[in-house]
Design a protein around this nucleic acid. Structure first.
Lengths: 200, 200
DNA sequence: CCAGAAATGTAGTGTTCACTACAGATGTGG
DNA sequence: CCACATCTGTAGTGAACACTACATTTCTGG
């Protein structure tokens, strides 16, 4: 009984703004003042809705991975392992230099190393990256079963490789590399997967 | 005339300790209190010697790249482009999981994204990474001239690629990947360079 | 052995940080 | 229309931050 005053802001839109701040400045570099200003709310609203700064980050990460989930599904829907790698890396070259977002990837920019008290932020990001890697691995396992990858290839190693290249591209993008430079990296990287593919 | 009281600590040994703190916690995550404790000095000594926190970081980066310079020279001394890539990436797999140091690479862990007021820290790191990339590119240019790489290969793109994989491996290492996992990535990555090499 | 130059340890400085107490506003259930 | 639950803005809270004033110590040059 009695449901209280309703929230005056849209939580998802606010999260989108918070995501961008974390993306650009990292977890520790982002201040509550920057976050609340970007979200258009005051600190008490933030804390009532997300608990604390780390809770806000997790919510932003959830939203980020959810938004990217659809795209990852498209990636693994490619017909061959090689095409999966190409679609993934070329897509990343595009996404990570999309002027609509900060450069790079939130799962990297968010915070690779953190100070005392925020030690689990890097772990949190790593866990989300691992989800993508798992999805790739499962796809490559299937590719091998389908005779698309050669007998000696290791699907888990391939997934790790594609994941590592993605991360490297993200760092490059955040430090100013343009789309063409990332495409070149993706192009070379795909050749390693091609080398493990069965020729047709 | 009159040369003042001599410094009681060894600047290079102190830098080694500072390096480790930045490496583990990143620029923003490292506090002056942690740094001075690790270095075994008090704040005034730090500021007298290095100017400020950013000056200390730059000095630590200088030392880091200097220490790694000798190793990079060995890397580019490998006989072929493929061997350069292999020596580089396998060496990185080893170095970035060396228990004597924090995992990963200082040039990445130091700070990919920073808050307002430290914006040029990421640039500083990127500039040092670019030096390695340039060294690789020069080596691949030579490899192509020597007929070691195929006509259609782009030495700059190859260097960017190897550099990107290195960075990606660094992030993996910092988030807990073990040496074997990194070796697998390196192994796959080398195959892309192999695909651009002239067969013997 | 003394004057001056530079490093050191103690103990702070002001600022910024994440976070919150509180009072008023705005809704719902009865 | 009233009791209550929840959100909102204002205005702070203590803690931690990078950095420094100052008196003292330890050296060199003359």
């Amino acid at each position: 009984m009695a449901m209280g005053r309703p929230r005056e802001f849209d939580a998802e839109m606010a999260l989108d703004q918070a995501m961008e701040v974390f993306w650009r400045h990292g977890y520790e570099g982002a201040t509550i003042a920057q976050l609340t200003e970007a979200m258009g709310i005051n600190p008490p609203s933030l804390y009532a809705c997300f608990g604390n700064k780390e809770g806000l980050l997790k919510a932003a990460l959830d939203r980020y991975t959810k938004l990217r989930g659809a795209w990852m599904d498209e990636v693994v829907a490619a017909p061959t392992a090689r095409d999966v790698a190409e679609r993934m890396l070329m897509g990343i070259a595009e996404k990570q230099t999309d002027p609509a977002n900060p450069p790079g990837c939130l799962l990297v920019q968010g915070g690779i190393a953190c100070g005392t008290g925020s030690e689990n932020v890097p772990f949190e990001l790593a866990a989300r990256r691992a989800q993508n890697e798992d999805q790739l691995r499962d796809r490559f396992v299937r590719a091998k079963a389908e005779g698309d990858l050669i007998e000696t290839s290791d699907p888990a190693a391939l997934a790790r490789y594609v994941s590592a290249v993605s991360v490297g591209m993200g760092v490059m993008a955040s430090s100013g590399s343009d789309r063409e430079a990332l495409r070149q990296v993706a192009d070379v990287a795909v050749q390693a997967v091609e080398a493990q593919s069965v020729r047709v």
